[in-house]
Structure formats: structure tokens, C-alpha cells
């Protein structure tokens, strides 16, 4: 356990050092983030013109969802994107062999090797929006609700990670998974808006099949103190399920890799 912890620290400090080599990237990411955020708040404001509401969500409540989305996007950019899009290169260049021969879990290595520090401002800004908007809605932000909020964020992140890792792991068969990742990202964009704003069929899909709702809507409901216990339990079950599936799939994929690669 201590070994894993020390490894993470070294992974990330080297990641930090190698990103310093490209300072410009940091600035670009920052600009892109600000552009994306102001763009989506602008689009959101179009829904609320003429005093309308969006799926029973008030403007401030909908802003909480934007905040959660920004936070998740920040985590994605910091951890998921840099690591999981690399897996295909490990396979293509054959350096996966080195990873497999390290006395450390290969899924751990592949999922956590890199950390993009450009994601941090986005994470902070996302949380700021969440709490700022929560206060603006006038609700009483209790410690309990905040705790539930972080639990539901964790649930959402585990689900997202597992689905993404599943796609990335399939690069052992398909050399390019870039497109599948694009589909995932396009669908995730649906999480910018409250799940109740969608037609019923999509609501079902986004809750059970591709649990977008767990990424943004449910954490936002948690802040507002509206999240039902059933949903938390369902979330815990789903995230465990997805994580176990991703784990089993990786073991299966490695079995294929070691019996078919040359």
C-alpha cells in the first residue's frame, strides 16, 4: 500500500515536471476552459429567456449542474484523458510489455500514471460555482448535504472512469478507440443540463444505460438536499458494478493479449 502511494507521488511529480516543458499548453487549456464555461452558461441562459424554467430547475439550480459538470470535466482532463487515451499507444508501441512486467498492478499503472495540472483550475472553478449558486438559491447548505454531495461526486466519477476504461481497454483488439471515446464525450455533454429536461426515454437511458445523470444531476440534487436515498443506493450499486466489470474486462483483455500478441 505504501509502495503504491509513493509510486503515485512520483508519477505525479514527474508528470508535473514534464508539463513544465510545455507551459503554453497550460495557458491554452485555461483559455479553452473559460471559453467553454462562458459558452455553456450563455446557451443555458437561452433556455431561461422569457422567464421559463428548464425541467423544473431554476436558473441558480441549473447553474449548480454547470458547476458539477465543470468539476467533472476538470477531473476528466486531469486524470482520465491523459491516462486512458494513452493506453492505445502502449498497445500499439508494445510498451505495454514493460508495464506488465512491473511488480505493480497494470490497471493501476495505466489509470494513474499521468496527471494533467491544467485540470486543477477547472476543478476549483467548478466547485466554486456549485457552492456560490447553492447559496444564491437560498437553501441551507448543511454539512450532511455537503457530505452526500461529495459521496455522489465520487459515485459519478467511478462510473465515468469505469466506462471510459472499458472503452480504452478494448484497444487491445481495436487499434483505434479514439472514435468510441468521442462518442462517449459527446454523450457526456448531455450532462450539462438537468436530466428532467430530457424526454422520458432519454432520461431512462441517461440514468441506467449510460449513467450521465449520476455525473451531474444527482450530485447537484445532493447539494440542494433533494437527493433520494434510493438514488444513492442505486448509485453505489451501479458504480461498484461498473468498476468490477471494468476490472474483469481488463483481466480478460490481458489474457487475450498474452495469448495472441507476438
Amino acid at each position: 500500500m505504501k509502495r503504491y502511494f509513493k509510486t503515485i507521488m512520483l508519477f505525479w511529480s514527474t508528470a508535473f515536471a514534464s508539463q513544465l516543458e510545455y507551459q503554453l499548453n497550460f495557458l491554452i487549456e485555461l483559455l479553452a476552459m473559460l471559453g467553454t464555461l462562458s459558452g455553456s452558461i450563455f446557451i443555458l441562459s437561452l433556455f431561461f429567456s422569457d422567464g421559463r424554467q428548464l425541467g423544473d430547475w431554476s436558473w441558480e439550480a441549473a447553474l449548480i449542474i454547470q458547476g458539477v459538470y465543470t468539476f467533472m470535466d476538470g477531473l476528466t482532463n486531469a486524470l482520465l484523458r491523459p491516462n486512458l487515451t494513452e493506453i492505445v499507444n502502449y498497445v500499439r508501441e508494445g510498451t505495454l510489455d514493460y508495464v506488465l512486467l512491473k511488480p505493480i498492478d497494470s490497471q493501476f499503472w495505466l489509470s494513474i500514471k499521468k496527471f494533467s495540472f491544467a485540470g486543477i483550475p477547472e476543478i476549483i472553478l467548478g466547485l466554486t460555482i456549485v457552492f456560490w449558486s447553492a447559496i444564491r438559491t437560498g437553501i441551507n447548505l448543511s454539512v450532511f448535504n455537503t457530505l452526500i454531495f461529495f459521496v455522489s461526486l465520487f459515485i459519478g466519477f467511478v462510473i465515468l472512469y469505469s466506462v471510459w476504461f472499458l472503452i480504452a481497454a478494448s484497444s487491445i483488439w481495436f487499434v483505434k478507440t479514439w472514435n468510441a471515446t468521442e462518442v462517449l464525450r459527446a454523450l457526456l455533454a448531455a450532462g450539462r443540463y438537468p436530466i428532467t429536461a430530457y424526454p422520458v426515454i432519454l432520461r431512462l437511458i441517461f440514468t441506467l444505460l449510460l449513467p450521465v445523470a449520476f455525473l451531474t444531476t444527482f450530485p447537484a440534487e445532493a447539494v440542494l438536499g433533494e437527493l433520494k436515498l434510493v438514488i444513492i443506493i442505486l448509485g453505489l450499486a451501479l458504480s461498484t458494478f461498473f468498476f468490477v466489470v471494468s476490472r474483469l474486462f481488463w483481466i480478460y483483455a490481458l489474457k487475450h493479449y498474452t495469448s495472441a500478441s507476438s
Binding site: 433556455f47 421559463r52 428548464l54 425541467g55 459527446a186 454523450l187 455533454a189 448531455a190 443540463y193 429536461a197 430530457y198 424526454p199 432519454l202
Partner: peptide, 9 residues
């Protein structure tokens, strides 16, 4: 996705 949002609301 956007279509479903705009039309639903």
C-alpha cells in the same frame, strides 16, 4: 441531444 432539449422544453 440538443434537439430533444429544445423541443422538450
Amino acid at each position: 441531444i440538443m434537439f430533444s432539449l429544445w423541443s422538450q422544453n
